[in-house]
């Protein structure tokens, strides 16, 4: 079995565009658990978890989960205290 390396938020730029209708990889997100604010591009991303799992690079807490089902994308953002628009 091959272990699957975690990627980063750059890998979900397309998915985020679908959900937010905007470029979000440069958007600063704040972790509920540790308070760190970092661009989504720097988050830890697992594409092949059940759904797409996004974790805080500082503390490892869950930030976002995306699950596609029957043409819909279910989005769980409970791990984010804030998600701002990307800098212009």
């Amino acid at each position: 079995m091959r272990t699957v390396d975690a990627l980063d938020g750059n890998a979900i730029g397309g998915l985020l565009r679908e959900v937010f209708r905007a470029e979000m990889t440069a958007a600063p997100g704040t972790c509920v658990a540790c308070g760190t604010t970092a661009p989504v591009a720097e988050a830890v991303v697992y594409l092949r978890a059940p759904g797409t799992v996004v974790r805080c690079r500082t503390c490892g807490s869950l930030l976002m989960v995306f699950v596609r089902k029957e043409g819909m994308t279910c989005v769980d953002l409970r791990g984010l205290a804030a998600l701002d628009a990307p800098p212009a």
């Binding site: 990627l7 750059n10 591009a41 092949r48």
Partner: peptide, 10 residues
């Protein structure tokens, strides 16, 4: 420093 990671999922 801006980083981009890829792996076997790519």
């Amino acid at each position: 420093i801006k980083t981009e990671r890829f792996g076997p999922t790519g």
